[in-house]
Each structure stands twice: as C-alpha cells, then as structure tokens.
Amino acid sequence: MVHMFSFQDEEDLFMVVDLLLGGDLRFHLQKKVGFNEQTVKLYICELVLALDYLQRSHIIHRDIKPDNILLDEHGHVHITDFNVATILQGSETVSSMAGTKPYMAPEVFVSFVDGGVGYSFAVDWWALGITAYELLHGSRPFEIRSSTAAAEVLCIIHSQQLHFSCIWSPGMKHLIRSLLTRDPSSRPSSLSEVQASPYLADVDWDAVLQKSVSPGFVPNKRRLNCDPTFELEEMILESRPLHKKKKRLAKSRNQPSNPLPTHVQRSLDSLAEDFIAFNREKMKPQRRSVSDKPAANKHCEGQNNSNMMMMKMMKKHSSSELH
C-alpha cells in the first residue's frame, strides 16, 4: 500500500507518496533486462491483487502498462499514474476513449467506433495480459501504435494470431491467452477467476500480499533507475524553479485581483477548509539567544571555565618541575 499525504502553498498542491527507487518496468525493458518466467509470474500475482483492490474500490485504472508499474528497492511492483482512472458504481459502464492504444482492450474501440454498450473493469485485465506478454517477449503481441486508427486496431486484434515462445511453460501461455480473450464476458476479470488458473495453484497468495516472496529481479541500488533527462526535464530546463516561483508569487500579490462569483468563492472556501497552507517558516527550529539559556547552563559554563583554568595552572606547574 502506498502511503500519501498532501500540502499546498499559494500556487500548487503537493502530493507526497512513497519513494520507489527501483524505476519503472519500461526503463528496465529498454535496458534489455531479461525477465524470466518466475519473475513475471510474481509480477502478475502482485498486479492481480492490486487490480482486485482497485476493483473493490470501484476504480478502473485504464492505463496499465510497463511505464506505470514501478519497482521498489526490493523488486516488488506498484501501480502508479491514475491520470485517466475513473470510478464505476454497480453495473455502470464507460464509453470514453482513454488509455494507451497498444494496451487498450478491443471493447474500448468497439464502444468508440460502433457506439457499443461501453466497457468495464475487464479492460485492466486485458492490459495486464499485454504487459505480461511484453515483459516475457520484449515486444507486444499486436503491432499497434498510438497513431493507429481505432477501426484498424480492431481489425489487427481480431485478425492477428498470438505467437508464444517455445520456452514458455504451457501454464503461462494459457494464462496470457485467457487474459487476452477478445470477448470481455469470457475474460478472467477478478481475483477468484485468475486464481482458478491451474498455473497459479502453487501460489501462496497471503505471502504475495505480504511481499514475503522474493522477486527474481532486484534493481541495482547503486545507480539511478530512470532516465534523468526525461524524469527531471523541468529541473534541467530551469536551474532555479523555486526562485522564479517566489518572484511570480510576489508579483501576483501586488496585482489587484478580480473578485470571483459568489458561488465559486463559496466552493473554494469549502475546499480550503480541508487543505491548510504549508508554512515552512513555522517548521524551522527557533534559535535561542545566549540570554535565553537556562540558569543551570550558565552554572555549568562557569564550572567548565574554572576547570579549564585549573588544568592550565597544573600543566604549567608540572612543566616547571621537569625543568
């Protein structure tokens, strides 16, 4: 579970999450890390538990892919980037086009092209199948790009056959094939349905949940597991971003502000009650002057000065005796 809290200043809302030093799976794929089957099997199990948690919370992530799966320093996976996630209640469905095309389930495109009934949680489990295949094979099962038209994507998914490596176990092939079932009603889309796979019969799910199963791949702790030119682009382009922000805020304070409509201001005031502005000055330890020191400290200082003078006199006396 990722722990999070937030704070804000006059301009920005800051969200603080756990520091995950292992990088994302896309970075390691680009570095040609060869994930073996046992490692990918554990990833699938951990992601299945994560998707089950999201589903019980009525959340569809809609963008499961290696880029959005982070590793901690021990090699366990964590889902991130909920920018296009949405909430579903009961039997509701979604019809909007959202996600990354090579990982999007066919029912998303059907809904967009033909105005179908929409889609639900099963799209995340399709994306899990695409991700598992890519981690093992190094490339995705379907030749789909972000520029590929929606109708063409449907044609590729329904016409192109899945090809599996001969070194993969039959159980892994069957699991990935089931996750990539075109019909969402036949696709395993829950924890219990995935657990029913004979390939996962030997999995200790409680141990997986507690992260007590050691991953087969542990990121190198001695290097930065990301591309800084991509991850820190803002910081590189602007050497002192906070310095400019300080000037910008000072300028905005001096400019007369236009009053907002009453109903908008009332809504903002209600939101402000839940977010207290962070004041870093109040967090700084207060420096005490010499006069603020307790009397006991003054007494100790007097004793220390007397002791130092006594030691100097003894040292001088002993040196005169030697001569």
Rank of each mutant, 00 (worst) to 15 (best):
H243T: 12
E152K: 10
A207D: 10
K211H: 14
L71E: 05
S57G: 09
Q8W: 04
H158G: 10
P198R: 06
F7R: 01
K312A: 12
D12Y: 15
K312D: 09
S306L: 14
N307C: 13
E143N: 15
S91A: 12
L237I: 07
L20H: 05
H76C: 07
I276S: 15
R62F: 03
Q161R: 12
C166S: 11
R266D: 08
M308C: 04
S239N: 11
G118E: 07
M314E: 14
S239Y: 08
T86C: 11
K221V: 07
T131A: 00
K32S: 15
V77N: 01
L49A: 02
N68Y: 01
K245Y: 12
T262N: 03
E321V: 13
K245P: 00
H158V: 08
V110A: 02
H299Q: 14
K284T: 04
I69K: 02
Y103F: 15
K251F: 08
L271D: 06
D18Y: 01
V203K: 03
L47D: 01
G138F: 01
V33Q: 09
S197N: 08
D227Y: 09
S289W: 11
S169G: 04
P106V: 10
T80H: 02
S214K: 13
F27L: 03
N254F: 11
L224K: 14
L51D: 02
N297K: 13
N225Y: 14
L232H: 09
S146Y: 02
L154A: 04
L237P: 00
G171N: 07
K282H: 07
